[in-house]
C-alpha cells in the first residue's frame, strides 16, 4: 500500500518536474548549459521503483512534453522510455558505492540522449552543429549530475531504509 502511494507520489513529482521544465528551467538556460529535470526524475524513479515504472513513466512524461512543445511528437517519449531501461541496466553493474552508480547513470543517459536526439533530428533532415554537440556533451552531464543531488533526495523522501537501493538490489549486485 505504502509503495503504491509512493509510486503515485513519484508520478506527481514527475509531472511537477515537467511543468517546472517548461515554465522555469528553460528560461534559465545559458549558452550550451541545458538542465533536464524530467530525465533526472525518470532516472530516480527507475532507481527507486524499478525498470517498469521508469520505462512507463518515461513514455508518459515524454509524450506529454512532445504534445506540449515538441517538434517531432514521440521522440521525447522514446528517449525517456529508453532512459528508464538504460538506468535499470546501469544499476546492475555492481559498483559498491551507490552514489557512483547514480552519477554514472545520469552521465550515460545525458550523453545517450544528446547523441540519439541529434541522430534522429539529422535523419529527419534537420541540420546538426558538431561544435554545439561537442560543447553539450562536455557540459550537460555535469549540470545534470548537480541537479540530481537536488532531485534524488526529494524522490527518496518517505522511503524506508530497507527499501533503499543497496538493500532492494542486494541480490543483483
Amino acid at each position: 500500500m505504502m509503495k503504491a502511494i509512493q509510486r503515485i507520489l513519484h508520478f506527481i513529482i514527475l509531472i511537477i518536474c515537467l511543468v517546472f521544465q517548461v515554465t522555469l528551467v528553460e528560461r534559465l538556460k545559458l549558452y550550451y548549459i541545458n538542465l533536464d529535470l524530467v530525465m533526472i526524475a525518470i532516472a530516480g524513479i527507475t532507481i527507486f521503483d524499478g525498470m517498469m515504472y521508469g520505462v512507463v513513466y518515461g513514455f508518459i512524461a515524454g509524450m506529454i512534453l512532445d504534445l506540449m512543445v515538441g517538434n517531432v511528437i514521440g521522440l521525447s517519449a522514446l528517449i525517456y522510455a529508453l532512459n528508464g531501461y538504460i538506468v535499470s541496466k546501469i544499476i546492475n553493474i555492481g559498483l559498491k558505492k551507490k552514489i557512483f552508480v547514480y552519477i554514472l547513470a545520469i552521465f550515460f543517459i545525458t550523453e545517450i540522449n544528446l547523441l540519439f536526439s541529434t541522430g534522429i533530428y539529422y535523419l529527419f533532415n534537420f541540420r546538426a552543429s558538431l561544435r554545439g554537440l561537442g560543447l553539450e556533451i562536455a557540459i550537460n552531464p555535469i549540470c545534470n549530475i548537480l541537479l540530481m543531488f537536488v532531485l534524488f533526495p526529494i524522490l527518496q523522501t518517505g522511503r524506508e531504509r530497507k527499501d533503499e537501493f543497496g538493500f532492494l538490489h542486494k541480490d543483483e549486485i
Partner: peptide, 16 residues
Amino acid sequence: STIVLAVIIVLCIIVI
C-alpha cells in the same frame, strides 16, 4: 518489462 519497452518503442516509432 522488456516486452513493455518493446511495445513502447514500436508505439513511439509509429507516432514519430
